[in-house]
Design a protein around this nucleic acid. Sequence first.
DNA 1: GTGAAAGCGCTAACAT
DNA 2: ATGTTAGCGCTTTCAC
Lengths: 362, 362
Amino acid sequence: MSGVKNITIKQVALDAGVSIQTVSRVINNRYDVAPQTRQRVQEAINRLGYQPNAIARGLASRRSRTLGLVTYDFNDYAFTQVVTGAEEVAHQHGYFFMLGNSKCDPCEEPKYLRLLTQRHVDGVLFARLAGLDVQEFLNLLANSSVPVVVTGYHRRDLPISVVDVDNQAGARQAVEYLLENGHRQIACITGPLSAQSAIDRLAGYRQALENTGISYNPHWVVEGNFTARSGYLAMQKLFQTDRQFTAIFSHNDRMAIGALSALHQAGLRVPEDISIIGYDDIPEAEFANPPLTTIRQNMVEIGAAAARLLIHLVENPGAAAEQVLLGTQLVLRQSVHPHWTDFSPHPAASHHEAIETQQSDG
Amino acid sequence: MSGVKNITIKQVALDAGVSIQTVSRVINNRYDVAPQTRQRVQEAINRLGYQPNAIARGLASRRSRTLGLVTYDFNDYAFTQVVTGAEEVAHQHGYFFMLGNSKCDPCEEPKYLRLLTQRHVDGVLFARLAGLDVQEFLNLLANSSVPVVVTGYHRRDLPISVVDVDNQAGARQAVEYLLENGHRQIACITGPLSAQSAIDRLAGYRQALENTGISYNPHWVVEGNFTARSGYLAMQKLFQTDRQFTAIFSHNDRMAIGALSALHQAGLRVPEDISIIGYDDIPEAEFANPPLTTIRQNMVEIGAAAARLLIHLVENPGAAAEQVLLGTQLVLRQSVHPHWTDFSPHPAASHHEAIETQQSDG
DNA sequence: GTGAAAGCGCTAACAT
DNA sequence: ATGTTAGCGCTTTCAC
């Protein structure tokens, strides 16, 4: 807390023997300043340790170079990755994010939007899990006086700017991998079906089954809420079915880890007795027992792309809404075993883009 | 992006038939406004949908009601919890946090501090892992024109405001629990010893051993870097020692989970063959195989306390630096078994504050 | 209790 | 290429 007294543009102008505007031009990197004048001003700036007051700049220019970032949950790994990617891009472009936490409560979002609007952010990024609250969210967008970008949700029919992962394709990829390994009885632990991502992943699951001519068994689909605990409980529910399934597709890794725990407790071996595939590729997935085969989505890139899009929208006022969908990657580890029966002849080799990981490297 | 045109205080004043200052008084909840005038103004505000411009307010009042939050790593669970707690408190007090990510690089912190200073934040919270870079950090504080609070670091001899967890006491608690269970040969997987938290936890480990008259075996202490992978590798290093240890204290849960993976691979049973205790109580700890006994520290509360302290410092310009140290809690699960030998008679029952958790509840 | 005047520190026109 | 004149929307100080 040293006394760096407030050097203003005025004092720099005085010190450099120029007018305030010339200093303004220099700090804004305008063309129309004579090289020597620029240098003289720059020297004065350095000498005095002048730092332009961003608040005053914001008031005069009506651009705060500040963005809002309202997330659903800071503690979820996927969200923190989005934040990481978004912050990085913002930083590169000279923006800051102001943070809001809606704590998974969609009602909080309009409040944050209002608050952020009062603070004259140039745009807002919502990192969320969207679902049945579509209408509410559209109202939100309608009330926004600034550009808004959303992650974790997309509807191609709506003119909103979105960066999301193709959940349906990712889920298809997961289930197709199980199918390629001969599994025909595949259970599913879903995320909360109020979440669009879970809806889409479930759709991908069904689609993959249907493409292979396998009928859908609703008893093998149990709803969780993305927590490890819910995966554990979902697994217990699955135990109460006919238990004929040979593999499980979990809508995220945390639930898969919970399921793994229940599986172990029940004395079942993974993947010998039962295979499981997760989704997200959280860091712990690699060190689950056994290491979890999963679907990776680059959430950092989602955040980065969302911030890039938002800044684009901010800096190009006329720009139209864009929807960006990123792909997923199959990560091969040890929680899936082949399961060949007479009814499931060995299919052609996988054509999926996939990577294998080992614990011993790096 | 609707056209909520900018209603200003001027138009409210006009509409209410009062002066600008009266409106200002109303929105700032000053006493000296006649009740009926206040109501008339309030009605105008509501009618016009007026939202005070926080930027202009900041410029005039020289208080932005904005704070900086510079973290080491958004992807670390402990940090995200700090962010959660801090944001919540800020929100309650009408502040916003601007986000910075130093990505574990102490050199980034001064840059962020400068940038945040330009934006006239009222204070800055550094959520960090401190260690050998003390001097650099002190320079940082010296260059700060605003109050600063730090988490993840404390030195009682320095006049800086700090909210931290008592790592040494927490580690002692962990090791004492192993001792109470009869373990006498206790290995340790440490965090990076450039981090103060790891240094303190190692000190707590040694202290607990010394208190029981057990000599320190440096071969059983392997340094990791808080990642699961490093725990896995550390475990492999421990296998190359005499392997006489019966228990392991890991400086965090992620490394413990990595160690667990190596232990399983080596065909060792936990806790029958070897006990392990972690630190942090991350959500996955409960669903490790076996569920991980660990030390919980309330990082949300750390963040909340830090934000509270920061806001206190901001709003009470004369206030002195404070150091807050929070305690830890032993969480009993299934990764520790008693290990009784002739040399370790059953001690008195534990006097630790401890909680037991089950997977089936909730 | 209320209003008029004077900025906060900067940028954006328009001058020259 | 540089300076002059006006604000941006609010708070503050000081009148009345």
